[in-house]
Amino acid sequence: MGIIGSTIKPFKATAYQVGKDFFDVTDEDVKGKWSIFFFYPADFTFVCPTELEDMAEQYETLKGMDVEVYSISTDTHFSHKAWHDTSDKISKIQFPMLGDQLHTISNNFGVLREEMGLADRATFLVDPEGVIQVMEITSEGVGRNAKELVRKVKAAQYIRANPGQVCPAKWEEGSDTLAPSLDLVGKI
């Protein structure tokens, strides 16, 4: 089953967010705005804090684009708070950190490594209707790039606002797009 174009499945998780402490987040809470689900294997690890710090550095840009970020691991919300309180890199995070100790969200997105009880390193961009528009999954040792994710969000938002247009490789905001047609076949 393809995941791009599918609708997210129901979930409920407890999140930690600085200034808000603990609160519940459901699939219904994310509808109506763009959302990034940023899965990582575990708190207190190695590549994960570098990626989360990178995402934290892009968070204000993403918020300005009406995008909420949810980082998710199979750790508890208590572990997220402890990590936030003790790590220089993680202390920069302002977005909600969801605990998925029951593996509901990781299973819903198809990124749970059951034999380990950990989520894959995976990113999903979900539109305001709850439909997955972008996904990226890497091996555990390969960190992601939040600036590239911002570019992909801009492209997804552009094509949503401009039906009939598509964004070519390396498209940047303000660059030319394409309008697919029979006339373009074999000419690009």
Score class of each variant (00 low, 15 high):
Ser6Met: 10
Ile8Cys: 04
Ile8Val: 15
Pro10Gln: 03
Pro10Arg: 04
Thr14Lys: 06
Ala15Gly: 00
Gln17Pro: 03
Gln17Tyr: 01
Val18Lys: 12
Val18Asp: 07
Gly19Glu: 08
Phe22His: 05
Phe22Ile: 05
Phe23His: 04
Phe23Cys: 04
Asp24Gly: 10
Asp24Ser: 10
Val25His: 02
Val25Gly: 04
Thr26Ser: 15
Asp27Pro: 06
Asp27Cys: 04
Asp29Val: 09
Asp29His: 08
Gly32Ile: 12
Trp34Glu: 10
Phe38Met: 07
Tyr40Phe: 12
Ala42Lys: 14
Asp43Tyr: 01
Phe44Ala: 05
Phe44Arg: 01
Thr45Pro: 02
Cys48Pro: 09
Leu52Ser: 12
Glu53Thr: 10
Glu53Gly: 12
Met55Tyr: 03
Ala56Val: 13
Gln58Ala: 12
Gln58Asp: 11
Thr61Trp: 01
Lys63Glu: 14
Lys63Tyr: 00
Gly64Thr: 13
Gly64Asn: 14
Met65Asp: 09
Val67Tyr: 02
Glu68Trp: 00
Tyr70Ala: 11
Tyr70Ser: 08
Ile72Met: 04
Thr74Pro: 07
Asp75Glu: 04
His77Asp: 13
His80Asp: 08
His80Thr: 05
His80Glu: 05
Lys81Val: 03
Lys81Asp: 01
Ala82Glu: 12
His84Ser: 14
Asp85Glu: 15
Asp85Ala: 12
Asp88Trp: 00
Ile90His: 02
Ser91Lys: 10
Ile93Pro: 05
Gln94Gly: 15
Gln94Ile: 07
Pro96Cys: 10
Pro96Met: 08
Gly99Val: 02
Asp100Cys: 06
Leu102Trp: 00
Leu102Pro: 02
His103Leu: 02
His103Trp: 02
His103Glu: 13
His103Ser: 05
Ile105Asn: 07
Ser106Phe: 01
Asn108Gln: 12
Phe109Lys: 05
Gly110Trp: 09
Gly110Lys: 10
Val111Arg: 08
Val111Asp: 10
Leu112Thr: 13
Leu112His: 08
Leu112Gly: 07
Arg113Ala: 11
Arg113Lys: 15
Glu115Cys: 01
Glu115Ala: 09
Met116Thr: 15
Asp120Lys: 13
Ala122Asp: 05
Thr123Arg: 03
Thr123Asn: 11
Phe124Lys: 03
